[in-house]
Amino acid sequence: MHQILLIRHGEAAKSPTDADPGLTPLGQRQAETLADDLDRQFPGGEGVRLVSSPKTRARQTAIPVAGRWQARVDEQHNVIEIPSPEGMPLAERGQWIRTLLKSRWDTLSPAQGNWREDITDYLLQLASTRDEGRFHTTLVFCHFMVINSVVAAIRNDLQVVQFYPDYASQTHLAIDDGKLHLVQLGQETNIGSLIQ
């Protein structure tokens, strides 16, 4: 059985003009606290693979634990945040996300449906036999919508929002018999920290 932790990035510097903001000072502290916790769970990182969305806020959240373990972080486009509708200006993305949170997965565009399928396909291949024996756990530093899309797929539930993962929260999954299973949801947040 392979374990996956979907880790939401730390607090990011929200901006209607920056498509790839980094962490705030609070977000950096959250990443350090997360590294402490991960090092307690997986001392020295033995048998743990690190994967991150290419977005700066996710990569910066992975850096403290990667530094402690002297481990490489594998950037994967498969776990990047949900794409905006084609042609949507960045300034309108925040409002679109707020509307999306009240939507159902079956009402989204084919591009967003493909994004969602790519995430679950990627996660399932993490337990491939070629890595058997090397890794027992994968930490995936990603985003609010990535986590919700996976939880919804496991539950076979069409509601977009399944729960509200907090910054630096850890949602535990397992791959067993070629299927993803939800072990435990991560810590939840309030509505104010949903976007970015």
Results as ranks from 00 to 15, higher is better:
H136D: 13
L124C: 09
Q162C: 07
E132D: 10
L90V: 05
K14Y: 15
G87A: 11
S15K: 07
L50V: 11
E188N: 06
Q41W: 12
S103W: 00
R8A: 04
E117C: 03
V140M: 01
D121W: 01
I4M: 02
A111D: 15
P43Q: 08
G45S: 04
V146S: 02
A12N: 05
A91V: 13
F141C: 09
L26Y: 00
T138M: 01
D37M: 06
T33S: 13
Q76D: 05
A152H: 02
R49V: 04
I80K: 08
Q162N: 07
T138E: 03
I195T: 13
A152F: 02
E81F: 02
Y122P: 02
S109I: 04
P16A: 10
A127W: 01
I82D: 07
D39R: 02
P85V: 12
A13C: 05
A35L: 11
L90C: 05
T171W: 09
D37T: 13
Q184S: 15
Q3H: 14
E75N: 11
A19Q: 11
P21E: 06
S84R: 14
R49T: 03
L124H: 09
A19L: 01
C142L: 09
D121Y: 06
M88Y: 08
R59V: 15
G113P: 00
I82Y: 08
D157N: 15
N114I: 11
Q162V: 06
H77I: 15
E188C: 02
L100I: 00
T137L: 10
S84F: 04
A174V: 12
P110Q: 13
D74H: 13
L6P: 02
Q76L: 12
Q76N: 12
P110D: 14
V73H: 10
L185W: 00
D39W: 03
A19N: 13
L26T: 15
R155L: 13
E86Y: 05
Q125P: 00
H143W: 08
G133V: 08
T17H: 09
G113K: 15
L185F: 00
Q162H: 07
K14M: 09
R104C: 11
L185R: 12
P83G: 08
L173F: 03
Q170F: 00
D37I: 02
D39T: 05
L90I: 12
M88D: 10
T120R: 10
D37Y: 08
N156G: 11
V161I: 15
D18C: 11
V73S: 11
D37V: 03
L124G: 09
E132N: 07
H2A: 05
P83W: 05
D18S: 08
S128D: 14
A58P: 01
L90P: 01
Q187N: 12
V183M: 10
Q60W: 04
Q70G: 12
A91C: 07
P89A: 12
T24Y: 06
P165N: 07
L6W: 06
P110E: 14
